[in-house]
Nucleic acid binder design. Structure first.
Lengths: 145, 145
DNA sequence: GTCAATGCAAATCGTTTGCATGAAC
DNA sequence: GTTCATGCAAACGATTTGCATTGAC
């Protein structure tokens, strides 16, 4: 488990540095993603906030604005999954790719150094400066076969 | 270059087999993708048709329906690119992955046997039966750097 | 003649924007 | 007090749907 306090501190620092204002809403959104097991869409983040903290009167527009902001300052990342649109995850998790069961939706995260290395090489060969990548293997998991 | 006649024949066969009707519109949409150099969005396909064949009075809804249909019967594939939404490509092209410039949208296709092999291995290790996969490397291309 | 596919317009979904209000500094 | 961030509602673009009509079989 990551130390979410640290990441929150990081956010405070960034906001101050940019001469912007620190708001509870941005913290809440970041916090949701820090503790999320899954990758969440903007709407899922919104619902999560609503259900966890009924008192909080956050608007969906604010969630979108917070997500854009957090991605811009590199605290979170968005991934385009095949099926249901843009999903977000905290950057404090280490990099990994995804095995996705198309039957039950189970997601297994994995990392393969050799693949990572070869991606670097392909990028170099094509003179690309890689900023991110996403790789998904779709199939049927053991339980569903 | 692929033999587009063959793919069109394939479409005719599938339609007949399913007891559906063969229409000019589906053929036009498939044909656009067969001859497209690029990956196209639904709207780009629509515009292409309009400009090429001004007489044709196709509706955008029909394009969307044709694309869904063609993907369902596995003649085309959609990819979710980071920037501008869902794009389609013909399946008669051989399998490949994508390098995508997040600045100008340029797409370079590549294939790496070693990566393909390792993906197989990862699937096996996790007892997954792979049906498909998608991999995109995002970055800045040479021209945009 | 039957039934699926089409074109059009209206509806819907996810996301963004304008603007008056509220909160951080 | 100033300025940025918020909430709300309206606007927006992409996609889907309802429905009457057309076209394939």
């Amino acid at each position: 488990m990551i130390n979410s306090e640290e990441v929150i501190e990081e956010l405070k620092k960034i906001v101050k540095q940019k001469g912007l204002k620190y708001t509870e809403q941005r913290e809440i959104v970041l916090n949701i993603l820090l503790h999320a097991v899954d990758h969440l869409t903007a709407e899922e983040v919104y619902n999560e906030i609503k259900s966890k903290d009924g008192a909080s009167n956050i608007g969906i527009a604010t969630v979108y604005r917070a997500l854009s902001f957090l991605e811009e300052v590199d605290l979170i990342t968005s991934i385009n999954f095949g099926t249901d649109g843009k999903k977000y995850e905290s950057n404090s998790k280490s990099h990994h790719d995804h095995l996705i069961c198309t039957q039950c939706g189970k997601i297994i995260e994995f990392l393969d150094d050799e693949i990572e290395k070869r991606q670097e090489r392909i990028a170099k060969k094509n003179k690309f400066k890689i900023t991110s990548h996403s790789m998904q293997l779709y199939g049927i998991c053991e339980d569903c076969q």
